[in-house]
């Protein structure tokens, strides 16, 4: 063994001995993140679950344990059932609309056309606006008196329409406003996906005589699956948790007609003084979102792998 080899071995041994300390140092650096995660995610979740087993009114020093009473109440509460349906409409409605619009916009703005960067920025801009501001802007558009839309209707000789007084139209308006605001996210995801598809596939298919539709269905769509999975899951979670826009546009009304689970939680907690019941709703919403996200992730990822 030469002197050089011995020195190399000594260095390796020293490195190995130092490895655990380096690992310890890295673990220690995790600590702030772990503490924040424990404090702001795990603790509220556990506390929320404990709260859901009580009939606390939301402000008194005392509370009583009522077991699963709040969960049984949820199962038989028609208002909650209707709210759950609304929540799915907001979640899936917004997701579908955002995929269709987002993909269409991405395809249109992926081409080398003049002003495409400006157009991309304009479409993405609402994402940066607070949903409360967005909701207020649309409220001013849809409100009965002095509403922009009704001004147009009247100018065209029609009568004013109470856009937000019917459950069906109000729910549709909420889905539309949410979709318009966040379509920019889908567009950006799809644009990134489109730009990652090598042009050689299109050139080869062109030589084989494929038309534009065939290129879209046989090349673009399969290769956009990873982008699709990301966009769907993000939009779905956002839609299921929808709160601000509803609160500003309709306040959950008329009656209980446009509530999402999130807005109903606010009502139950602060207005009805049923903090325990509100927490039970929160836990159910958490489970629904977790299960749906898991299902979508699994299904979409499996398809993605099959597509490879």
């Amino acid at each position: 063994m030469t002197g050089t080899t011995k020195a190399a071995i000594r260095t390796k041994v020293r490195r190995r001995a130092g490895a655990p300390f380096a690992a310890r140092r890295i673990n220690l650096l995790y600590l702030p993140a772990i503490l924040l995660f424990l404090g702001f995610t795990i603790y509220p979740l556990v506390n929320g679950f404990i709260l859901s087993l009580s009939n606390w009114n939301g402000y008194s020093p005392s509370r009583s344990f009522i077991g699963l009473g709040n969960y049984f109440r949820l199962a038989s509460d028609p208002v909650f059932h209707n709210t759950l349906i609304n929540t799915f409409i907001y979640g899936f409605g917004s997701t579908i609309l955002q995929q269709v619009l987002g993909l269409s916009l991405a395809l249109a703005l992926d081409r080398a056309i003049r002003g495409r960067n400006v157009a991309r920025a304009i479409i993405y801009l609402p994402v940066l606006v607070s949903p409360v501001v967005m909701g207020t802007m649309y409220y001013l558009l849809f409100s009965y008196d002095n509403g922009g839309l009704n001004d147009i209707v009247v100018a065209l000789g029609g009568s004013k329409i109470a856009w937000l007084s019917q459950a069906g139209t109000s729910v549709a308006i909420i889905v539309l406003v949410n979709s318009v605001q966040f379509v920019g996210i889908s567009m950006v995801i799809y644009l990134a996906g489109l730009q990652s598809i090598p042009t050689v596939y299109y050139e080869a298919s062109q030589l084989d005589g494929a038309d534009a539709w065939q290129q879209f269905t046989q090349i673009t769509v399969p290769l956009l699956r990873p982008a699709f999975a990301t966009s769907v899951v993000l939009n779905l979670i956002g839609g299921l948790k929808l709160f601000d826009v509803i609160q500003v546009l309709t306040g959950g009304g008329p009656g209980y007609a446009t509530n999402s689970v999130s807005t109903l939680i606010g009502k139950a907690y602060f207005d009805n003084q049923s903090a325990g019941y509100a927490s039970a709703m929160g836990i159910v919403l958490f489970i629904i979102i977790a299960v749906l996200t898991l299902i979508f992730n699994t299904v979409l990822n499996r398809r993605r792998l099959e597509g490879l």
Partner: peptide, 9 residues
């Protein structure tokens, strides 16, 4: 008898 803008007033 109620105002038409009940939901948005």
């Amino acid at each position: 008898y109620f105002n038409a803008d009940f939901s948005s007033a």
